[in-house]
């Protein structure tokens, strides 16, 4: 070690440890970006030729394999609707649960710990199991009993449909929304709650007027994560509402629907001529990706708007 006076602090010292670590993290980032780039390039390169206005706006015939006549409009509508309906259910339920867990539940009680354990375990259930749950509970139990109560001559609620598929997806993505909301709520400084309570607000008013608005961007992030996950899931909708073929667009919540992800599965397994089908396959995947991005973009836009408003006015 040289004497203190003679250290030349102008020349940068080579610190091996830092260098190695920086290199490692850089490499990991590059790797992830590379994988993403590979997938995107592959899909775009192979799919864009088949992508046309006709493709995305027409209802296909039973023959899926003719790339000039087929279309994916019903699948787009189907995927979009089930994701939107799912969001309508999962956000309120998830937020309310998270609010209960964060703001009301006493930390040490047995009930709280059971609820938390349930949420964590729910996140680990395989998606196909959700599909079976949807069939057994929503369709065969709730739906059939609803039909009986309404004295429907034919099965209206007791069969696969958009509503049951969406609810199944909602149950599946609930943990994501709960966790994201909880994090957002915890990030709200305790001082704000205390200030509100000290002015004579009830706990509920404090949550509604101060805490939730502040946590909204985080909650929307949870929503975005849920949407991204649900858009691509096929297993949960297999028994709960997806149809191999429908000649028209779905009209009611009780209708069945077609789906982009499922269509990819269909194209890959039912095709007799893989070379002919491949471009259609890629194009469908591309449409699915674009749809997911679009849905995410809407949510991100809403969230950014909210953040901007929170920072300046209001």
């Amino acid at each position: 070690m040289s004497a203190p006076n003679s250290i030349d602090f102008r020349t940068k010292q080579f610190r091996a440890g830092s260098f190695f670590f920086t290199g490692l993290t850089g490499l990991a980032t590059v790797l992830i970006l590379a994988i993403l780039a590979i997938i995107l390039t592959d899909v775009i390169f192979n799919g864009w030729r088949t992508l046309s206005w006709h493709f995305v706006s027409s209802i296909p015939t039973k023959d899926f394999f003719d790339r000039h006549t087929t279309g994916v409009l019903p699948m787009i509508i189907g995927t979009a609707s089930r994701v939107i309906v799912m969001t309508v259910f999962v956000l309120p339920v998830g937020v309310i649960t998270a609010v209960y867990l964060t703001e009301y539940a006493p930390n040490s009680s047995m009930v709280t710990r059971i609820i938390r354990a349930a949420v964590n375990n729910l996140a680990g259930v395989p998606s196909i199991v959700f599909g079976l749950f949807g069939l057994g509970f929503f369709i065969n139990f709730v739906g059939k009993n609803l039909d009986a109560a309404l004295h429907n001559p034919t099965a209206v609620w007791g069969q696969p449909s958009i509503i049951w598929a969406s609810l199944t997806l909602a149950v599946m993505t609930l943990p994501v929304v709960i966790v994201a909301t909880e994090e957002a709520l915890k990030a709200v400084p305790q001082g704000l709650r205390e200030a509100s309570l000290a002015l004579g607000a009830t706990k509920l008013k404090t949550i509604i007027k101060i805490v939730l608005p502040q946590a909204m961007p985080g909650i929307l992030t949870g929503g975005i994560l849920a949407v991204s996950r649900a858009a691509g899931e096929v297993a949960p909708i297999l028994f709960t509402g997806v149809a191999y073929y429908m000649g028209s667009l779905p009209q009611h919540l009780t209708d069945r629907f077609m789906d982009l992800g499922y269509h990819v599965f269909v194209l890959s397994t039912q095709s007799t001529n893989i070379e002919q089908t491949e471009p259609i396959l890629y194009a469908t995947v591309l449409v699915l990706l674009l749809l997911t991005f679009a849905l995410n973009l809407v949510a991100i836009f809403i969230r950014a708007n909210m953040r901007r408003k929170m920072r300046s006015l209001h």
Binding site: P189, G191, L192, E194, A195, S196, A198, L199, I210, Q214, M310, L313, H314
Partner: peptide, 13 residues
């Protein structure tokens, strides 16, 4: 009423 050690205005106007 109460005023706290760390000022805690709401993120409002």
């Amino acid at each position: 009423g109460m005023v706290f050690q760390k000022s805690n205005p709401f993120p409002k106007s």
